[in-house]
Amino acid sequence: MRVEVFYKLHPPSVFGLPGDDYTVIPGGEAGIKDVVGPTIDTLTGSVVGLGTLSQYRRFDERLSLRLEREGVGVQLVDNYVTLTLDIDGRSLDLEKCESLIESLCLWLTHFASTPVFAEPLQAVIPETQQVLPLRTTCTAMKYRWYHVPTIEGSVREWSSCNLQEHLMAALRYYRLGLLLAETGSSHFDSFQAQLMVEAISNYWKAVSAIVGDPSVDRDYQRRYRQYGIDEAFFKGEIEWLREDMRNQSGVAHYRLGRPDSARLLEDCSRAGRIAKTVIAAAIRYDMTGTSR
């Protein structure tokens, strides 16, 4: 039985289409060479004149391809992709479809010099018009906890904290780690895993900015003590982050194969908690000059 799986590639501007916040300009030999920005009043910051405008592809210039890869028919019309493959019974090989579409996106990313991603749309059995489920993301809710007394207390502490260079560096890495982790939580493909790996890397940098890195700091095995971090936490958490995560999970070195996103989500949360604990110890030390 034959099934058709539909995807939409983003961003559409790569294909000469509208749909994102960029001015879309044709390249190549016949493309626009000089791009002029809008005229801005330097006194008010207001736009008072337009520059180069988007020039979308003509209908006769649209991407339209039919080809085959690994026994799967692949059709591209603009930024829409249709995979056509045979299935046994009613079981769709999602792994094969996702692997194919990911390789296409990575390939296009290289040649377009723009990150390309695929949005799953639907899978249909043309013979029966039955729609098959695809893995996709659905954000039911985004929420944040808040506690005003904690924020108030932290601002008061900030006003008197020493904020030494190592602490500022740790806070920068920690913030970037949080941003990467939050972004990764909205994806379900291998890109999520890559974002989580980068988040873990920045959490480790936040930790090492304070307790040191054995590759560059000779006092790494003892510096943590001055911040009141006990040996059990150092060996069980900080060393786990350095050895297991940094050296074995594709954080410091490349790793082949598809990572386990679910496991990385758990590890990323743990790494974030470790970084937060170490930063809290450093803040306490910088404010009081003591470890406890």
Results as ranks from 00 to 15, higher is better:
113 S>Q: 10
72 V>M: 02
109 T>F: 05
243 E>H: 11
27 G>S: 08
159 S>V: 14
259 P>K: 07
183 T>Y: 15
169 A>V: 14
233 F>P: 05
93 D>I: 01
195 L>Q: 04
225 R>H: 10
153 G>C: 10
239 E>C: 03
272 G>N: 00
274 I>T: 01
116 V>Q: 06
91 S>I: 09
149 P>F: 14
254 Y>F: 14
208 S>F: 06
63 L>Q: 05
263 R>C: 09
189 D>M: 11
275 A>W: 02
162 N>S: 15
101 I>C: 03
227 Y>I: 01
47 V>F: 07
71 G>F: 05
38 P>A: 03
220 Y>Q: 04
175 R>M: 07
60 D>R: 01
5 V>S: 12
51 G>P: 00
207 V>D: 08
190 S>A: 12
22 Y>M: 12
103 S>F: 03
69 R>L: 13
197 V>Y: 06
226 Q>T: 11
254 Y>Q: 12
245 M>F: 04
244 D>S: 12
132 L>C: 11
207 V>K: 00
15 F>Q: 01
23 T>Y: 06
115 P>N: 08
183 T>F: 14
130 Q>D: 13
260 D>L: 01
128 T>H: 10
231 E>G: 04
185 S>A: 13
124 V>N: 08
237 E>W: 10
149 P>C: 15
244 D>A: 14
17 L>Q: 05
197 V>N: 09
26 P>T: 13
231 E>Y: 04
23 T>M: 07
8 K>N: 07
77 V>Q: 12
154 S>F: 11
178 L>S: 10
248 Q>H: 15
62 R>P: 00
114 T>N: 06
174 Y>P: 06
70 E>V: 00
92 L>Q: 03
102 E>M: 12
140 A>P: 10
132 L>D: 01
250 G>L: 04
50 L>R: 07
291 S>P: 00
199 A>T: 03
229 I>W: 04
145 W>D: 15
260 D>S: 02
104 L>N: 06
284 R>V: 00
218 R>S: 13
68 E>W: 08
263 R>L: 11
90 R>V: 07
70 E>T: 00
276 K>W: 02
250 G>E: 08
183 T>I: 15
278 V>H: 00
20 D>T: 05
26 P>N: 03
199 A>K: 00
36 V>P: 00
268 C>N: 04
71 G>D: 02
89 G>H: 01
30 A>P: 04
149 P>D: 14
229 I>F: 05
21 D>V: 13
13 S>N: 09
223 R>M: 09
40 I>F: 07
169 A>P: 12
